[in-house]
Amino acid sequence: MLSRVADSIYWMSRYVERAENLARFVDVTLNLILDQPSHFESQWEPLVYTTGDQEYFETRYGEADGSKVIEFLVFDRDYEGSIISCLNAARENARTVREAISSEAWEQINQFYHMVRGASHRQQAENQTESEFFDAIREQSQLFNGILDATLSHASGWHFANLGRLIERADKTSRILDVKYYTLLPDPNDVGTTLDDLQWSSVLRSVSGFETYRKQFHAISVDKVVEFLVLDRHFPRAVQFCINHADESLHAISGSPLNTFQNLAEQRLGRLKSELAYSDVQSIVNGGLHEFVDDLQVKLNEVGEAIAEIFFGRTTKVESTQSQTQSN
């Protein structure tokens, strides 16, 4: 397929996934706040902090509170990380490859964009609570993914979409975990309390993982939650799952056998896959979850750069000595 088309499909899919994860992110915070004493109001700040754009936020909005953060993360057209901006980017990418994806998929992304745009236009969707609105965003994204899976031939176009979706998802699941780990653990006295359980359950709920977790582990414990969200091979939002399946799509695109590599992207992703496969939760926690997540995100970025260079013909910052590695 055309490199430009592959590039757009990959990003279309990443941006939809990004919008969905943002909605999950905000929703979990909303839920947490409803369930806890008022002194936890400061929950909103970490959300701004994870974007890395707190300077922009402060200049434009001042002190963080619920409605400001929602305006910022959902409706702010001038902020490129907001849900509306992500959907706009997803839709513009889809528009340039309308002929390469199915009409149904295009119509869905178009409708999705208009739904959120319409809500921002009215400031808040009428007759809809905030939580329902975020549910609707999640549903729209899932509908899009379902349509893509059911109407697009599972050839290289679909694999590029899948690759974008899973790399984005791995990144965002780790981020949700990172933020919550950071904000939930400051007070060791809370560990093991009802409040703690409540908070970790809502983290699991935000990635639709609560029920699966319960079946596997029953009681909530921080280590188990980390193990589940990072190392589970079967849960579709767990990091390991995402990496394994992204790796399959990457090999389907190039045609090289699994567990071998012909290009830098396959090499980098394969290494990451193996690292996770032979890791365990204790070593992750002992080494510091935050450090682990940082490292994971750097590696995911490097995979992304290699994909852009090899398949989309984009020049990136990849060091040339590394890109000469070839299998025989």
């Binding site: 057209r77 706009n88 309308r98 178009n110 921002s120 236009h121």
Partner: peptide, 15 residues
């Protein structure tokens, strides 16, 4: 509208 057979209104910031 749903099929996206549309054109942008020039100068309208809200898209």
């Amino acid at each position: 509208h749903r099929m996206g057979i549309t054109f942008a209104v020039y100068g309208d910031e809200s898209g």
